[in-house]
Design a protein around this nucleic acid. Structure first.
Lengths: 243, 243
DNA sequence: CAGTGGTCTAGACCACGCG
DNA sequence: GCGTGGTCTAGACCACTGT
């Protein structure tokens, strides 16, 4: 029942856990590993893919596969302890159908698009797109930021627009990256990513910003902490029900 | 730069969006589609895999591929509007290394394992494992539940153990299912899943329960809404920083 | 039974990294 | 240049579904 590539992955995982393959060490070439496990190269690559998603292995084209062990993952949200280099670029666009819907704006509405690319140790970690309609605000230009998620911009908007409270809704799904995302993040197109769609809405119903955050599964995770009170007998539960 | 299977996926996506391929309709056999797009069967399957993860296509072994359109996704957390059939099974186990760490219990501590399998229209939607140490409570047996996430058990524990407040931390990652998970959920082993690790901790530091929730990416998503107040100038932000 | 997807093979060819 | 991974081919064989 267990597939061939999973058996291979299990063995490699065991060897890594045992310390037989040390952290930072390069694995043998894929062709060699394939011969060793008596599988074809695609099957061996499927095995490595599992380990890569778990953050145990990192691949570099032209160099090889390397053991990456417990894998420090970037957490969303929250300020990372390590310094991140965040590059911000800004473009003026018009909202197309899909984006217009999410911003609750009319099609062709002018919108500022900010792209945040965060890097650690020279390798990209996350990608964020933030869309702010011109009717909400015109944004000052930034080149860098302290936050990889564009929190600075959202905060700035709330300050400037004089909004006492607002609601932020995160919608997290797993999918594969588009080829553009894969290229920006320098990940394989077969590495699943966490896609976080964040809508920030003011209390008057106006959508202040829509953000799309892309986090490669081997480099990030989403963390949320909530305090729960003793329920009033019929169990608690908010309302984001179906769909 | 765009890979071959992505081009094929783009075309199929367009044809679905155009209504050329109607909802519920069966696609041509994979061999036939492969011939049509002049690609090999593995490449065509890669294309369908992308669409499957997006929730646009559903596959059934021996029957074919079917268009599934906007895809109503099960939301975590929150009570679904539609009736879900939740099957609960209970086992007594002892905490092994990994589980013991998460429960902050000593190894070999007796633990109750609850497995929640939720189904809609006869097909599985999510899988939840909940672990409660015996030192926290002995659980009454249930066969069904209203919540697919085991909220009823957690609520019951908080009620019973007389805990005023507790903290629930969710850690969301994307990965591939184990073969056991794939079998329970009846999904392909290559369908990414959202793995939610939930730790419920009382204010005195005792871990009340550890839950592992598995949500196939084509059937579920995680939704979180938070109210944000105007920041006090130096931007806000909680502390779940790195790792 | 015939038809379908699930998995795997044994290569091929290209693009990239490094010396 | 060479060795590496990235992608794809053209099949094979098995397991499952429905008639």
């Amino acid at each position: 029942m267990t597939a061939r590539h999973q058996q291979v992955a299990d063995d490699l995982r065991r060897r890594i856990a045992m310390g037989e393959l040390a952290i930072g060490q390069r694995l043998p070439p894929e062709t060699q590993l394939a011969t060793h496990y008596r599988v074809s190269t695609p099957t061996l690559r499927d095995a490595l893919e599992l380990l890569r998603v778990e953050g145990l292995v990192e691949k570099f084209q032209g160099r090889g596969n390397f053991v990456r062990m417990p894998s420090r993952r970037l957490a969303y949200p929250g300020k990372p302890g390590v310094a991140l280099h965040v590059i911000v670029s800004s473009t003026e666009i018009t909202a197309s159908g899909d984006l217009a819907t999410r911003l609750r704006a009319r099609p062709d509405a002018p919108v500022t698009e900010l792209v945040y690319l965060s890097q650690r140790d020279g390798s990209p970690h996350s990608l964020a797109h933030i869309y702010v309609p011109h009717v909400v605000a015109r944004l000052p230009r930034h080149k860098t930021s302290a936050s990889p998620w564009g929190d600075d911009v959202i905060d700035h908007l709330i300050m400037q627009a004089d909004i006492p409270v607002a609601t932020s809704t995160d919608q997290v799904t797993a999918r594969f990256p588009t080829s553009a995302e894969a290229q920006s993040l320098r990940i394989a197109v077969r590495t699943p990513v966490l896609a976080i769609e964040r809508t920030t809405t003011a209390d008057n119903g106006v959508v202040i910003a829509f953000s799309l955050l892309v986090l490669p599964s081997d480099r990030g995770q989403v963390v949320r902490t909530t305090r729960i009170k003793r329920p009033a007998n019929p169990p608690r539960g908010k309302e984001p029900s179906d769909d």
